[in-house]
Write a protein that binds this DNA or RNA. Structure first.
Lengths: 228, 228
DNA sequence: ATTATCTATAGATCTATAGATAATGC
DNA sequence: ATTATCTATAGATCTATAGATAATGC
């Protein structure tokens, strides 16, 4: 909330100002969409959170959907790129003996680390993705932005489990991504359910467990077990 | 859509009429909420789908949120009850040697079977739960309606894996429910991603794989492996 | 002299209420 | 004589556009 009383407005170049305002708008929208979804947020909500007038949003974006897509796209390339790199690095070091667990560590941990390292806005992005992943709008954007990462993962899994039918690998991925999105959603339900034993925003705990947990699942698929 | 042209209105008692209309409204709302969430659906959308006037919804329900909660509550008891029974039956037959996989079969397959047996409206309910499970409104209702089922599952898992810390069991459950909700959401993303190899509405495929997959995951938790 | 932000406002849509009409119930 | 459904409508809110004002840019 950029109240006039706080920091006195420093003189900025127009490009800077544009970039700053854009980022503030996207941050606010990202947070609000992550809580309430596309339809649960009004442009007024976003504008109020930034401290600007609603109509300014129309200066930067065509309409609400355009803003929504911009939120999705802004960080998609970063997470996508980092994960693909991590998987390529893993492939190189594993040679012709990649393992399911190794691939999943590269796929999952890289992403979790990104959000842990960069703090709140990125955690909001993770929650945003989780929130919209099972909506028509969100799923369509995932197709556009995340297919390459997923197909990269599948390709390593195929080499790790050559005798497992490809469908099983996709089903396994489906389970993995559901679990991951649920972890990113951080609804607080786990906290209440477990009587405070677990915190749903404890992504460190997720990272410690998830790759190994899921890898074991893949090894249950008939075909053959992983070359240890 | 109850067009006047179709079946001629049979004379019904008021109680019958009330029950029928209520069910039609809940069915329509369930479907629409499952696609677009609480905020993505207007009362007008629901009324139009039923073929009645919007204001009739206010005759049966206080407001939109009341309708939403009624949709959630209507089938919650059925799925909840069936799953608890199935887990109790399993406990009785397993004696003092329950297994993770056995518990998960009772927990997961019972639910999947319910939706497969009873067809579309119930499949919509599953999608509805999935759609709202990571929203504030949805998570709160899950607390109310589904905590007992989940805690029952946890209690069996505790006996199956006595040396595994309770937190791990909750984290494992967190992964399981994320995967299950993603399967119930049936967004079609898996179909596109896999080039048609998998169908996201193929709950039979989910049932065939999920319990075993997840059971293997639980066995990765340090403490000790399951007494085979 | 261009760009960022705000004021004013139109038009659409949505929730919700009051009160009328048309059925069923005794 | 009660209950189910519809008509009419108020008030709020939301998206989006047109055009004014206030900054930065040469």
């Amino acid at each position: 909330m950029a109240e006039g009383s706080g920091t006195p407005r420093v003189r900025r170049t127009k490009a800077e100002q544009r970039a700053e305002t854009l980022e503030q708008i996207l941050d606010a929208a990202e947070y609000l969409f992550s809580e309430n979804g596309l339809h649960g947020v009004t442009l007024r909500d976003v504008a109020q959170r930034v401290g600007v007038h609603t109509t300014l949003l129309h200066y930067y974006f065509d309409d609400k959907r355009d803003l929504f897509e911009a939120v999705f796209a802004r960080r998609a390339g970063v997470t996508s790129g980092r994960r693909i790199e991590a998987m390529e690095r893993y492939e190189a070091e594993a040679g012709d003996k990649p393992t399911v667990e190794g691939a999943l560590h590269a796929f999952l941990d890289t992403d979790i680390d990104l959000y842990l390292e960069r703090g709140e806005p990125w955690l909001n992005y993770a929650a945003f993705c989780a929130r919209v992943s099972n909506t028509p709008e969100g799923a369509a954007l995932m197709d556009v932005h995340f297919d390459p990462v997923v197909l990269k993962l599948i390709s390593i899994l195929k080499r790790a489990l050559p005798q497992v039918p490809e469908e099983d690998l996709f089903w396994g991925y489906h389970f993995v991504t559901g679990a991951l999105m649920n972890a990113f959603a951080r609804t607080g339900r786990l906290d209440r359910l477990s009587g405070g034993l677990c915190k749903s925003d404890d992504l460190v705990a997720v990272k410690q467990r998830m790759a190994k947990f899921m890898a074991a699942g893949f090894l249950t698929f008939p075909g053959r077990s992983e070359p240890a």
